[in-house]
Each structure stands twice: as C-alpha cells, then as structure tokens.
Amino acid sequence: MTPASRSRLRRCLLILGRVALGLVFIFAAYGKLRPIGPAPFTAASFEITGSSLSLSTMTFAMEVDSYHMLPTWGVMFVARVLPWFELGLGLLLLSGIALRWAGLITMGLVAVFLTAIVHSYIGGLQINCGCFGPGAEPVSKLTILRDSSFFALATGVTIGAFFDTRAKRKPSSEAATAQVEGAVSADPGA
C-alpha cells in the first residue's frame, strides 16, 4: 500500500468514524428532547414546544437523578444542558468543523458517561441508563460494552483528526521551506 492510498484510507475511516459518532450524539439528543408520547420519528415527535420540553427535561432529570451522583441542582443543570450540548457536538462531528477539539470533548464526555455507568453497575444500582432518553434500558454489561465502543471510536476519531491536521500542515510547511530555500539561492549576496 502506497503512502497516498494509506492516507486516503485513513481519511475515509476518519469520515466514517466522525459521521457515526455524530449521528449517535444527534440521536441521543433527539431521544432526550423529543416530546413524550408521540411515536419516534413522526411529525409530532419533532414538535418541540415549551411544555413538551419541560416534560422531556424532567423525564431525563429523573434518569440522571437515579445515578445518585449529583445534588438536585446538578441534576437539573445536566438535564437542561446535556441534550443541547450533545446536539451541538453531534453537528460539529458530522460537519467536521474543529474536529480535533470536538473529538477531545466527545472522548471526555463518553469517559464521564462510562464512569457513571460502571460506578452504578458495580454499586448494584438497578437503574435506567437514560443514554438515549426515557425508556426501560437498565444499566447492564451490554450498556458498558456499548459505551466502551463509543469511547474507542471517539479516541480513534480524535487521534485521526490530529494526524490529519498534521498531514495537512506538513506539505504546506515543506513548501514554505522550499520557498525560503529558493529565495536564499536566488539571492546573489548569500
């Protein structure tokens, strides 16, 4: 495999990884923000109003609270902010804008989720994961495995994004060096 084709493959994998991760985050945000009641992905499930949002927030707050890791104000802060944060992060990953930083933040966020899930699983807490909004999805080995794979994906995307940026910078810096060298050789006084 030539360096060029290797670089192409790496870039393709990076796009696939960030799109997958972005969709996961957008789906997670949608699950937490969508109105309670209507079937998912119907017109009604996208009609987010003030009262529907308040109910969705409180439903998610109950799931955050069941982890017993935060005081009431902390639970309410997470319930209000996290879904929108996930949506923003998902859009950033999907678009590829500021990918290195989006990747780093995603890694950190997934690490926090994973820690909370493992902590509650080890502590024998029988609770809903709440990862993709309300629903009977108890914390289990399967949820730990799923979040671990998200963490691995986020790590891969972040490393890939840093490599990609370096690879993009390298030719331009080489060109700049060449330009400087050219300028020096052209200078008769040198």
Partner: peptide, 26 residues
C-alpha cells in the same frame, strides 16, 4: 394521557415532583 413512562430505581422526591407538575401542566 395513555402514555406510560418506566422509572427503574429510586428517584429523588423533588425531581419526581417536578416531573409530576410538568405532567399536570400538559
């Protein structure tokens, strides 16, 4: 309103109260 929400585990009362109030406002 015909919709059922499962809650697994213990939820703190202030949060449940907020949820019930939001439901009653619907």
């Amino acid at each position: 309103g015909g919709h059922r929400t499962p809650i697994i585990g213990v939820v703190s009362y202030p949060i449940l109260r907020g949820y019930l109030d939001a439901l009653l406002r619907q």
